[in-house]
Each structure stands twice: as C-alpha cells, then as structure tokens.
Measured scan of single mutants.
Amino acid sequence: HFTSQQLQELEATFQRNRYPDMSTREEIAVWTNLTEARVRVWFKNRRAKWR
C-alpha cells in the first residue's frame, strides 16, 4: 500500500511522463522512500489502468 503522499508524487510524475526511465524511477524511489522496482510496477499498472 502507498501513502497519499507517495501516490501524489507518483501521479504528478505520471501526468508529466508515462514512461519514466531508470534514473527518473530511481529519483522517484528516493523521494517516495520506495524501491525502484515498486515504482516500476506502479507505473506499469498505472499505464494499464490509464488505457
């Protein structure tokens, strides 16, 4: 589960860029205190939901 702060950060990034690269995902991981893998999976799932 994600905190509302984490989701806000993830959503804001998603609005700007639906396909963040590795370095962007790592930055998000640092800001949100999540692993890069969790961030990558979140984006994958979010893109699926967005379609």
Rank of each mutant, 00 (worst) to 15 (best):
H1L: 10
M22T: 08
T32N: 07
M22I: 09
E27Q: 14
T3D: 06
Q8T: 10
V39Q: 00
L34F: 02
R51A: 11
K44A: 10
R38F: 12
F43R: 00
F14W: 05
M22Y: 14
K44Y: 12
Q15L: 11
N33C: 07
R18T: 05
Q6I: 07
S23P: 10
Q5H: 12
R47F: 05
R25Q: 03
A48T: 08
A29V: 01
E11Y: 04
F2G: 02
L10I: 02
E26A: 11
T32A: 07
E11L: 05
A37W: 13
Q6C: 05
R18C: 10
R40N: 09
R25C: 04
T13F: 15
W50A: 11
R38L: 15
K49S: 09
T3N: 08
N17G: 05
T3L: 04
A48F: 08
R46V: 02
L34P: 00
E11V: 04
M22W: 11
D21Y: 02
Y19L: 03
Y19K: 04
T3K: 04
R51Y: 12
L34A: 08
R38I: 15
E9T: 15
T13C: 15
N33S: 08
N33F: 06
E26C: 14
E27R: 13
R25T: 04
E9R: 15
K49T: 11
E26D: 06
T32Y: 08
T13E: 15
Q8L: 12
N45F: 13
N17T: 08
T32F: 12
W50Q: 09
H1M: 10
T3H: 05
R16V: 11
Q15K: 11
S4Y: 13
E26M: 15
L10P: 00
T35W: 04
V41D: 12
F14N: 04
W31I: 15
R16P: 02
D21K: 06
T24C: 13
L34R: 02
A12G: 07
W50V: 08
Y19G: 01
R47T: 03
R25S: 02
R46K: 05
E36M: 05
K44D: 06
R18E: 05
P20L: 02
A37C: 08
E11N: 04
S23L: 12
K44T: 08
V30P: 00
R25H: 01
E26W: 10
Q8N: 10
F2T: 03
N45P: 00
T32I: 13
V39P: 00
S23D: 08
E11T: 02
T35R: 03
V41I: 14
R51L: 14
S23F: 09
E9H: 14
S23H: 13
V39C: 01
A37Q: 13
R47H: 03
K44W: 09
F2L: 14
A48M: 08
E9F: 15
R51W: 11
Q5T: 11
W42T: 00
W42A: 00
Q6R: 03
S23R: 15
T3S: 09
T35N: 06
N33L: 06
N45G: 07
I28V: 07
I28L: 13
V30M: 13
